[in-house]
Amino acid sequence: YFQGQLNAMAHQIQEMFPQVPYHLVLQDLQLTRSVEITTDNILEGRI
């Protein structure tokens, strides 16, 4: 994955969860590489 793709995914998640800091979303995406998994992590309070 290149950074631009991760940034696009992070923006997509931020639209759904504007209360979660962008850098935390991006940090999780770098591990998961998945909008779905990061979204689940937010919903389950891991982020």
Rank of each mutant, 00 (worst) to 15 (best):
Y1S: 13
Y1D: 15
Y1N: 13
F2R: 07
F2I: 12
F2A: 10
Q3H: 07
Q3V: 08
Q3K: 11
G4E: 15
G4I: 14
G4F: 12
G4L: 14
Q5T: 11
L6M: 08
L6S: 02
L6V: 07
N7F: 15
N7R: 14
N7Y: 15
N7E: 15
A8F: 13
A8I: 12
A8Q: 12
M9P: 01
M9Q: 06
M9E: 04
A10K: 02
A10L: 09
A10N: 00
H11W: 12
H11M: 14
H11G: 07
H11F: 12
H11I: 12
Q12K: 13
Q12R: 14
Q12T: 10
Q12F: 13
I13W: 02
Q14E: 05
Q14G: 08
Q14C: 11
E15T: 12
E15K: 15
M16G: 04
M16F: 07
M16R: 13
F17D: 01
F17A: 01
F17P: 00
F17E: 00
F17G: 00
F17W: 05
P18T: 04
P18V: 03
Q19K: 11
Q19H: 14
Q19D: 11
Q19Y: 15
Q19A: 09
V20G: 01
V20R: 01
V20W: 08
V20F: 10
V20E: 02
P21I: 06
P21G: 04
P21K: 05
Y22Q: 05
Y22R: 07
Y22F: 13
Y22E: 04
H23Y: 13
L24A: 08
L24V: 09
L24K: 07
L24H: 06
V25Y: 03
V25M: 04
V25G: 00
V25R: 00
V25E: 01
L26E: 04
L26M: 09
Q27C: 11
Q27G: 07
Q27Y: 11
Q27M: 12
D28W: 08
D28Q: 03
D28A: 05
D28F: 07
D28L: 07
D28R: 05
D28V: 06
L29Q: 00
L29C: 03
L29M: 03
Q30E: 13
Q30L: 14
Q30V: 12
L31K: 12
T32W: 06
T32S: 07
T32A: 02
R33C: 14
R33K: 12
R33S: 07
R33G: 14
R33L: 14
R33W: 15
S34G: 02
S34V: 03
S34K: 03
V35N: 03
V35G: 04
V35L: 10
E36Y: 10
I37Y: 07
I37N: 06
I37R: 13
T38Q: 01
T38F: 02
T39E: 04
T39A: 09
T39W: 08
T39H: 05
D40V: 15
N41R: 09
N41V: 04
I42E: 00
I42K: 00
L43Y: 06
L43D: 01
L43R: 13
E44V: 09
E44D: 08
G45S: 05
G45R: 05
G45V: 04
G45Y: 05
R46F: 06
R46P: 01
I47P: 02
I47Q: 02
I47G: 03
I47D: 01
